[in-house]
Structures are given as C-alpha cells and as structure tokens.
Amino acid sequence: MPRQPAGISLRSVGKTYRGRGKTVEALKDMNLECAPGSFTALIGPSGCGKSTAMRVALGLEGFDSGEVLISGQTPGQATAGGVTGVAFQDAALLPWRSVAKNVALPLEVLGRDVSKFSAEIAQLIDLVGLKGYENALPGELSGGMRQRVSIARSLITSPEVLFMDEPFGALDQIRRRQMNVELQRIWSETKSTALLVTHGIDEAIFLADQVVVMHADPGRVVDIIDVPFARPRHPDLFSNPEFHALTDRIAKVLHGE
C-alpha cells in the first residue's frame, strides 16, 4: 500500500511510563490516522492516554515502539519547522506578557521576525473576540478569555496541523457552544488538520469529521465513528434527532457497552 502524506499518523505506537515501582501502559498499539485538512476528535475516560497521544505526536514525550509522522515528518522536524500549532488544557500564558506578546510567543520560539506579524496578531485577537485587550496582562482576564488567548496563540503560525487538548475545559456551557461555532469557522478558514482532545461528546460530533474513542488500561483506540453532517454546521445541529442518536451511540462505545 503506497504511503500517503497524512496530516497526523500514529502507527502501532506503544508508550509505557515507568514510575517508582509501578509502570503505566499509557498507549498500546495505538493507531490514529487524520487525513490532511480533516478534523478529528479524540474522546475517552480520564487517564486513558489522550494527552499522552497528543504529547507523543508533538514530540514532547518519547515513545517505545511504532511510528509517528506529522505531515510526513518526525514530530521533532514538524514542530521545529512551524508545521504545528498547539493549545493546552490550561491556557499556560506567561503572566508577565501582554495578550499580544503571548500570542506572539510561538513566532519568537521559531525565530521569526515578530514585527512583521503585527497585522496577523491583531487580526487573531479580534477573531477570538478580544479586541481592545491587546495590552492586558493575563492576570486581568477571566479564565475563558485566557483560553481564547491560547487559541489565538495556537493559530499565529498558520499551522498545517493544529493540536488542542481540552481547550474549552474552563468554559461554561454557553461560552463553550459559542467557542465551538467560532472554532469551526476559524478552522474552515485555515484549512488545517485538527486534532481535538475533549470530554464532550456533543462538542466532538459538532466539530469533527471522525470521532476516535479510546479506552484505558492499556490506552488504546476502541472505535472510530465518522460524522456525516454537512458543513458548515449550524448550532441548531445540537438539537437535531440524528445528532442525538449519534451521541447515544458514542456514549455506548465510551462506556464499553
């Protein structure tokens, strides 16, 4: 079979954490294929290895066996080449930098000339609804606003591949829905390959082309469910019967029924 340059590709990846005395098999024979330009949601019970899979794909964590390719490159090459963008569960903003400077951080890490990107920075801050807060410090923002700064930051390098680990974890239900709609719009404009780690089944279905369900002990993929709804998806979808049917199906897989 000829190899396609997939957006994200994890093949039979194994990863074991060796702590004092006990070992945790965080990933076992983990397979994940995300086609270029597709949106994948990764869902599973707490501790099943979702974050580990993402950290392995970003080269933040080594792995014991298997193969990991990001746009056909190793994780190290991909991150250093500015192919990837990332938003963590926690906003992880530097408290002494203004919103604009936090958004610019990946550019600095990649050694790009920040001054050439001032238009993009302003545009992204506007996109996440924080116009006027460019010079605010993270301490002056609410949890949800900080989260949006981190989304803007993940997009500043126009990444081919976008990783998000529960980016809306700190938001209330209404804000979360709004951000889901926003994220769909932003993503469809950027045409990137996206991987979203989440606990929300409705969020996963609303955003993703495929929902990947994982189970723990050892961390592995148990099912991949394609989401048939046409894009762009309207928030009305949340109250669509077919949507609910799919939600129930995924919930069953998730709970191992």
Binding site: L60, G76, T79, A80, G81, G82, A92, P106
Partner: peptide, 11 residues
C-alpha cells in the same frame, strides 16, 4: 506548562 508550549514549537 509554559515550558511545554515552548518545546511544542521546537524550542
């Protein structure tokens, strides 16, 4: 977490 972020961009 901030260190992870820098590392995630190849730093």
């Amino acid at each position: 977490r901030s260190a992870d972020l820098v590392r995630a961009y190849g730093g």
